[in-house]
Design a protein around this nucleic acid. Structure first.
Lengths: 202, 202
DNA sequence: CTTGTTTTGTACCGGTCGGTAAATATATAG
DNA sequence: CTATATATTTACCGACCGGTACAAAACAAG
């Protein structure tokens, strides 16, 4: 019968912070992709040795999956907050401009980790590729539900196909990730956001 | 002073067709990306051994660059033919529907090789990544010039910013490549094309 | 035939891949 | 102090990486 050991009960204490190490791993995976990232790249960026990485995160694949969770829960994430805006148009507006500013942010890798983390990849990466596809589809599903709710609330015309609209939004957002990789600036992405909003049903 | 040896003059004849081998290489690179493709993957798909690959194509990087050229010159390529349509709207129409059908075509890898061949990659792949970015920017540049010409011809309103419009088109087309990777059908991509055309200035 | 030229298959190169065994170091519990 | 538990470092594992040396094989020229 052991006492609940909340923060570190026994044994040699870990010499690094797992959260900051995971952030470093996310940045490397984001920049180089799963196949393009080696364990040497990771351990160097994280400032730890391989056994520490395996003890703390399992293996390369599990580390990548944890990086996905971190990416979506970061404070600068724009997707979920935009969903809570009062009208469908404002949801689209905040999401598009949030994406424009986030994806071209020079203080982090360009583009979107969920889009480019493992787009085309080896068979060894098929599991993480599937995980990213599921995240992209889940995002569009959330947007679909939000737009369906907006039709009920009356701030989106009844004739609008919420599923097509959400997939169109996903297409533009994912295209913006490629644009950011092409070197597009935040201003240029904002022009894309503006043009997309002109096509948005009101 | 040697006679011009047009088709095979001397030596053991090559036992494979370089064009079909290059097509096989394109398919593997397209599906797995540069980093995710090994020489073993390539030689197996191409049906040749490594020395034959190196003698015919140089090395992995040069083979990839030749695969880009093949990809853009294939008969089913939709980009350049669409540019020759008589009006800006028809250019956009043919390009968007051509992309919808091509990127979801089940007889080839989903999506667009130029988008996903080396989006996020290792430093070893930085040259091919840059080559793909240049191809994407060159496509948008061609579209830009076509729209500028359309403004002069009068089939695109003078107030339209041709550069923004071409970048918007590129964003949607690149987003459609991600959608195809998500498993979107040709019909779903056609809905994206339709919605994009509704936003197109006339 | 012989000679010269090119491609072929095999076998190999050093280096790196993801992952781990083992010994040492640093903490707590008693 | 000793005992236990966890993290650290170092060194290493077999497999695979991209790329090549070499000799046998298959052709044309003479």
């Amino acid at each position: 019968m052991t006492v609940t050991s909340c923060p570190q009960s026994v044994g040699r204490p870990r010499a690094f912070d797992t959260d900051t190490a995971l952030e470093k791993a996310l940045e490397v995976f984001w920049r180089r992709g799963y196949d393009g990232t080696s364990l040497a790249d990771l351990t160097e960026a994280m400032g730890i040795n391989k056994p520490s990485l395996y003890a703390a995160f399992g293996n390369k694949e599990q580390l990548f999956l944890k990086a996905i969770e971190l990416y979506e829960s970061r404070p600068c994430s724009f997707f979920l907050p935009a969903l809570e805006k009062p009208t469908a148009y404002q949801v689209a507006e905040h999401m598009l401009y949030g994406a424009a500013n986030n994806m071209a942010d020079k203080t982090q890798p360009q583009g979107c980790f969920v889009v480019q983390g493992a787009l085309s990849c080896s068979e060894a990466a098929s599991a993480v590729k599937a995980a990213l596809i599921n995240r992209r589809l889940a995002g569009e599903q959330k947007l679909h539900e939000r737009f369906a709710q907006a039709k009920i609330a009356g701030d989106l015309p009844a004739h609008v196909d919420a599923e097509v609209l959400s997939r169109f939004m996903g297409t533009v957002l994912q295209g913006m990730a490629i644009q950011a990789n092409n070197g597009a600036t935040a201003e240029q992405l904002q022009q894309i956001a503006e043009m997309t909003l002109q096509a948005f049903p009101r």
